[in-house]
Amino acid sequence: SSGGSSILDRAVIEHNLLSASKLYNNITFEELGALLEIPAAKAEKIASQMITEGRMNGFIDQIDGIVHFETR
Score class of each variant (00 low, 15 high):
1 S>Q: 11
1 S>H: 11
1 S>N: 12
1 S>W: 01
1 S>C: 13
1 S>V: 11
1 S>Y: 00
1 S>M: 06
1 S>R: 10
1 S>D: 13
2 S>C: 11
2 S>L: 07
2 S>V: 12
2 S>H: 11
2 S>F: 02
3 G>A: 11
3 G>L: 11
3 G>C: 14
4 G>N: 11
4 G>L: 06
5 S>H: 09
5 S>E: 12
5 S>T: 13
5 S>F: 03
5 S>Y: 01
5 S>K: 12
6 S>A: 13
6 S>T: 12
6 S>G: 11
6 S>R: 10
6 S>Y: 03
7 I>H: 12
7 I>Q: 14
7 I>C: 13
7 I>V: 12
8 L>C: 14
8 L>H: 11
9 D>L: 04
9 D>I: 05
9 D>M: 04
9 D>R: 03
9 D>H: 05
9 D>Q: 06
9 D>V: 05
10 R>F: 12
10 R>N: 10
10 R>D: 15
11 A>R: 06
11 A>T: 10
11 A>F: 09
11 A>C: 12
11 A>S: 09
11 A>G: 08
12 V>A: 12
12 V>G: 08
12 V>Y: 10
12 V>W: 14
12 V>N: 10
12 V>K: 11
12 V>L: 13
13 I>Y: 06
13 I>L: 10
13 I>D: 04
13 I>P: 01
13 I>A: 05
13 I>G: 02
14 E>G: 03
14 E>H: 04
14 E>S: 03
14 E>R: 03
14 E>W: 04
15 H>C: 14
15 H>S: 13
15 H>K: 15
16 N>H: 10
16 N>V: 09
16 N>S: 07
17 L>S: 01
17 L>G: 02
17 L>R: 03
17 L>D: 02
17 L>E: 02
17 L>Q: 02
17 L>C: 04
18 L>I: 12
18 L>M: 09
18 L>P: 02
19 S>I: 15
19 S>M: 15
19 S>K: 15
19 S>P: 02
20 A>G: 03
20 A>R: 03
20 A>M: 11
20 A>P: 02
21 S>K: 03
21 S>L: 08
21 S>E: 05
21 S>Q: 04
21 S>A: 11
22 K>E: 09
22 K>I: 08
22 K>G: 06
22 K>D: 07
22 K>M: 10
23 L>A: 08
23 L>E: 09
23 L>V: 11
23 L>Y: 08
23 L>H: 11
24 Y>C: 07
24 Y>T: 05
24 Y>E: 03
24 Y>A: 04
25 N>L: 11
25 N>M: 10
25 N>P: 13
25 N>C: 11
26 N>Q: 15
26 N>D: 07
26 N>Y: 15
26 N>E: 14
26 N>G: 06
26 N>V: 10
27 I>A: 05
27 I>S: 02
27 I>E: 00
27 I>F: 05
28 T>E: 02
28 T>M: 03
28 T>K: 05
28 T>G: 06
28 T>L: 03
28 T>N: 05
29 F>W: 07
29 F>Y: 04
29 F>N: 00
29 F>P: 01
30 E>A: 11
30 E>Q: 09
30 E>W: 07
30 E>P: 04
30 E>L: 09
30 E>I: 13
30 E>Y: 07
30 E>D: 09
31 E>L: 10
31 E>S: 07
31 E>G: 06
32 L>M: 04
32 L>D: 00
32 L>R: 00
32 L>S: 00
32 L>V: 02
32 L>Y: 00
33 G>C: 04
33 G>S: 07
33 G>V: 04
33 G>Q: 02
33 G>I: 03
33 G>R: 02
33 G>P: 00
33 G>A: 10
34 A>D: 08
34 A>L: 11
34 A>C: 10
34 A>P: 02
34 A>T: 09
35 L>Y: 08
35 L>N: 02
35 L>D: 00
35 L>S: 03
35 L>C: 05
35 L>Q: 04
36 L>P: 00
36 L>A: 03
36 L>N: 01
37 E>S: 14
37 E>I: 05
37 E>Q: 15
37 E>C: 12
38 I>N: 00
38 I>E: 01
38 I>D: 00
38 I>C: 05
39 P>L: 05
39 P>H: 06
39 P>R: 03
40 A>T: 07
40 A>L: 05
40 A>M: 07
41 A>Q: 10
41 A>E: 14
41 A>R: 09
41 A>L: 08
41 A>H: 11
41 A>F: 08
42 K>E: 15
42 K>N: 10
42 K>H: 15
42 K>L: 15
42 K>A: 15
43 A>T: 04
43 A>N: 00
43 A>W: 05
43 A>Q: 00
43 A>Y: 00
44 E>G: 13
44 E>H: 12
44 E>C: 13
44 E>I: 15
45 K>W: 10
45 K>E: 15
45 K>M: 15
45 K>D: 11
45 K>F: 13
45 K>A: 15
45 K>T: 10
45 K>I: 13
46 I>M: 08
46 I>D: 00
46 I>E: 02
47 A>H: 00
47 A>I: 11
47 A>K: 01
47 A>G: 02
48 S>V: 09
48 S>W: 09
49 Q>P: 00
49 Q>N: 08
49 Q>A: 09
49 Q>D: 14
49 Q>C: 07
49 Q>W: 04
50 M>H: 01
50 M>S: 01
50 M>N: 00
51 I>E: 01
51 I>R: 00
51 I>V: 05
51 I>F: 08
52 T>W: 08
52 T>C: 12
53 E>G: 06
53 E>N: 07
53 E>K: 05
54 G>I: 02
54 G>D: 04
54 G>T: 02
54 G>C: 06
55 R>I: 07
55 R>H: 05
55 R>E: 03
55 R>V: 06
55 R>S: 05
55 R>T: 06
56 M>H: 01
56 M>T: 02
56 M>V: 10
56 M>Q: 01
56 M>N: 00
56 M>R: 00
57 N>D: 10
57 N>M: 11
57 N>Y: 08
57 N>I: 11
57 N>P: 09
57 N>H: 11
58 G>I: 03
58 G>K: 01
58 G>W: 08
58 G>L: 02
58 G>C: 03
58 G>Y: 01
59 F>S: 09
59 F>T: 07
59 F>N: 05
60 I>C: 02
60 I>M: 04
60 I>A: 02
60 I>D: 00
60 I>K: 00
61 D>E: 05
61 D>I: 08
61 D>V: 08
61 D>P: 01
61 D>C: 09
61 D>Q: 05
61 D>M: 07
61 D>G: 04
62 Q>Y: 15
62 Q>L: 14
62 Q>F: 14
62 Q>R: 13
62 Q>M: 11
63 I>N: 10
63 I>H: 09
63 I>L: 11
63 I>C: 09
63 I>T: 10
63 I>K: 13
63 I>R: 10
64 D>L: 15
64 D>Q: 15
64 D>P: 06
64 D>H: 15
65 G>P: 05
65 G>Q: 09
65 G>E: 06
65 G>D: 04
65 G>T: 03
65 G>C: 05
65 G>Y: 04
65 G>I: 02
66 I>Q: 06
67 V>L: 15
67 V>S: 01
67 V>F: 05
67 V>C: 03
67 V>I: 15
68 H>M: 05
68 H>K: 04
68 H>Y: 15
68 H>Q: 05
68 H>V: 08
68 H>A: 04
69 F>M: 04
69 F>R: 02
70 E>D: 11
70 E>T: 07
71 T>G: 10
71 T>L: 07
71 T>I: 08
71 T>D: 14
71 T>M: 07
71 T>R: 09
71 T>P: 14
71 T>K: 14
72 R>D: 12
72 R>L: 13
72 R>W: 10
